[in-house]
């Protein structure tokens, strides 16, 4: 599903992140571990097509991400990659449903209210559909972000510290939800975290601090 080859990223201060080879198959889950500053976010952003690597290639599905033109890459990301961040980052000027409509619109997908209804129902957010995102609790906001990431049926879900700002109960809920939804949608899941609570739940792990 995702394959990395001879990947290298040079930071401003002579620091280098390099990953010679990495492969995650369809429907496999990978946990990227590492302390802060170890390059987890950099790797995730490169995989999402947000940050161009200095060397090497990243292939998602059959597509070489950095072989695409910038606007093509934006579109490919919108349609095939779902992103979940530590903070929820919803558009506060819009309500929950409009946030999801926006995700469909920006990805160039059809605006399908039925699909939004379905995803919100799966995540137990149906009652909040017309609510302003500012009126939601942190846990609810995080679930809306997950709903947004799943909305366009991505083939790859990338989550950057999804549990860092949550308590134990909510953290394990979110992890289960991500795993469950990835499975349900037939997507690969990649979580970058320094959260030790998550560690035991994944077989496939990449530890960046150990390099």
């Amino acid at each position: 599903m995702i394959s990395i080859d001879q990947l290298q990223f040079n930071y401003a201060h002579h620091k280098v992140l390099s990953i010679p080879h990495l492969e995650v198959n369809e429907q496999e889950h990978l946990l990227v571990l590492g302390t802060s500053g170890s390059g987890k976010t950099t790797l995730l952003h490169m995989m999402a097509g947000l940050l161009e690597p200095t060397h090497g290639s990243i292939t998602v599905g059959q597509t070489n991400l950095y072989g695409l033109a910038a606007s093509e890459r934006d579109k490919y990301r919108g349609q095939n990659i779902g992103l979940v961040f530590q903070k929820s980052h919803l558009i506060s000027a819009l309500n929950v449903e409009d946030n999801l409509l926006l995700a469909q619109y920006l990805a160039g997908a059809a605006q399908d209210r039925g699909r939004i209804h379905e995803v919100l129902e799966e995540l137990g957010l149906l009652a909040k559909k017309k609510k302003s995102v500012k009126a939601l609790s942190q846990g609810e906001q995080q679930r809306v972000t997950i709903a947004r990431a799943l909305l366009n049926r991505p083939r790859l879900i990338l989550a950057d510290e999804p549990t860092a700002s949550l308590d134990d109960a909510n953290a394990s809920k979110v992890i289960n939800l991500l795993k469950e939804q990835a499975k349900h949608n037939g997507a690969s899941l990649l979580i970058a975290t320094h959260d030790q609570r998550v560690k035991d739940q994944f077989e496939l792990q990449l530890n960046l601090s150990a390099q």
């Binding site: 947000l50 579109k75 990301r77 980052h89 558009i91 000027a93 920006l106 990805a107 947004r148």
Partner: peptide
């Protein structure tokens, strides 16, 4: 800034 970055991550091009 964050809103704009999120929109980009959701597939919006710079021009949009």
């Amino acid at each position: 800034k964050y809103d704009l970055a999120i929109m980009r991550s959701l597939g919006a091009s710079r021009a949009k």
